[in-house]
Simulated scan of single mutants.
Amino acid sequence: MNSKLTRTILIALALGFFVMWVLEFRRTTMFESYWLLLLAIMCLLMFQFSRLKASLLAKKEIEMNANKKKEKPVKTLKK
């Protein structure tokens, strides 16, 4: 899947689980609804991991392109 789509889905899931946790927490206790909070936190952590991984890959690609440009052969003068 596209990384932007994956990140959008993860952030939407995190918000959805958080809203469900708030509603469930108001109805029951923390002990009975903590699993929804854990799912929201897990989605947020996966979102952050995906975002950092994509930025590292983009940074490596930029560095590789910069190195390729620097490695042009130098012409020597003929005597």
Score class of each variant (00 low, 15 high):
R27C: 07
L44K: 06
L56V: 10
L56I: 07
N65Q: 13
I9N: 00
M30R: 15
L23Y: 10
F31C: 05
A66N: 11
K60L: 05
N67V: 12
F25W: 10
K72S: 09
P73K: 15
M46K: 15
W21Y: 14
A14T: 03
T8M: 01
T76A: 09
K59A: 05
F31A: 10
G16N: 09
K59M: 04
K59E: 05
W35R: 13
M42S: 07
F49T: 05
K53Y: 03
V22C: 04
L36K: 14
L36A: 12
Q48K: 15
N67A: 13
A14I: 01
V19M: 12
T28I: 05
N65P: 00
Y34D: 11
K68L: 12
L13M: 09
P73T: 10
R26C: 04
C43T: 02
W21Q: 07
E32T: 11
F17N: 06
K70F: 04
E32A: 15
A66E: 09
L10Q: 02
K4F: 03
C43V: 01
A66P: 02
N2H: 03
M1L: 11
L5E: 05
S3R: 00
S3P: 01
T28C: 08
F17L: 07
A54P: 00
A58D: 04
T6Q: 10
A12Y: 01
K60N: 07
L39P: 02
I41D: 09
V19E: 03
V74H: 13
S50Q: 04
E61A: 13
F47M: 06
R51L: 06
L56A: 13
S55P: 01
I11D: 01
L45G: 11
W21G: 01
A54W: 01
T29H: 15
C43H: 01
R51K: 15
A66W: 12
K70S: 08
V74D: 11
S50G: 04
F31I: 09
K59D: 01
K68E: 08
K4T: 07
V74A: 12
I11G: 00
P73C: 03
Y34M: 14
L57W: 02
L10T: 00
L37P: 05
E24T: 06
L44C: 15
L10R: 01
N65R: 14
A14K: 05
I62N: 10
